[in-house]
């Protein structure tokens, strides 16, 4: 047990937060659980070394995001796409939280894995572009361009979400 000392406590404390990020990445409760479990299982052999470094969460989040991108590459889209898109005419009142969440979830599900990761890191976890680039092992320019494309695609996919996306001033940066 010494090998994993402190790991159960870490899982109990940070598991729910990891699940929330994973849920936004995958759009599916089951896949979110699988993703978090996989990341934690990969963390386990290195637990003593990583925990002694003082920031195991950053480490496991890096695994989580990379694993998410790898799943996408290996097995294709993991979300459960709606067979037919919602009607484009007459968007429901965006003020309703349940409907807004539903529309946002559907629109996120149509982004690429990397674009979704950008949205989650930048606008859910509130990470800087530099932090996002470090976690996803890419350049800051890539973060900017992918974020720009992700937001543009969200606007195009679901105009009903426009008021959520009006505050951004992101200039597109060529990669």
């Amino acid at each position: 047990m010494v090998r994993y000392d402190g790991l159960p406590e870490f899982v109990a404390a940070r598991g729910p937060a990891l699940l929330r990020s994973a849920f936004l990445l995958t759009g599916d409760r089951h896949l979110a659980e699988d993703l978090v479990q996989t990341a934690l299982v990969k963390l386990a052999p290195r637990w003593q070394r990583v925990s002694s470094g003082g920031d195991p969460e950053s480490y496991v989040r890096k695994i989580l995001y990379n694993e998410h991108l790898n799943w996408w590459k290996r097995r294709g889209r993991h979300g459960y796409p709606t067979a037919a898109p919602p009607e484009t005419a007459g968007h429901p009142d965006i003020a309703d939280r349940a409907v807004r969440s539903m529309l946002l979830g559907q629109a996120l599900g149509k982004l690429t894995a990397k674009q979704r990761a950008m949205i989650v890191l930048r606008f859910y976890e509130d990470r800087s572009e530099i932090e996002t680039a470090r976690l996803l092992a890419c350049s800051v320019g890539t973060v900017k361009s992918q974020t720009h494309r992700a937001l543009a695609r969200l606007r195009a996919l679901e105009p009903g979400l426009a008021d959520l996306l009006t505050d951004f001033e992101i200039s597109e940066v060529a990669q």
């Binding site: 899982v11 109990a12 598991g15 729910p16 990891l18 699940l19 929330r20 990020s21 994973a22 849920f23 936004l24 409760r29 979110a32 659980e33 978090v36 479990q37 934690l40 939280r97 807004r100 969440s101 946002l104 979830g105 996120l108 949205i119 989650v120 606008f123 859910y124 979400l161 959520l164």
Partner: peptide
């Protein structure tokens, strides 16, 4: 909105 959406996530990891 993302925080609201994330509320649909499972509650705990086993």
């Amino acid at each position: 909105a993302l925080h609201e959406l994330a509320e649909g996530a499972p509650r705990e990891v086993n």
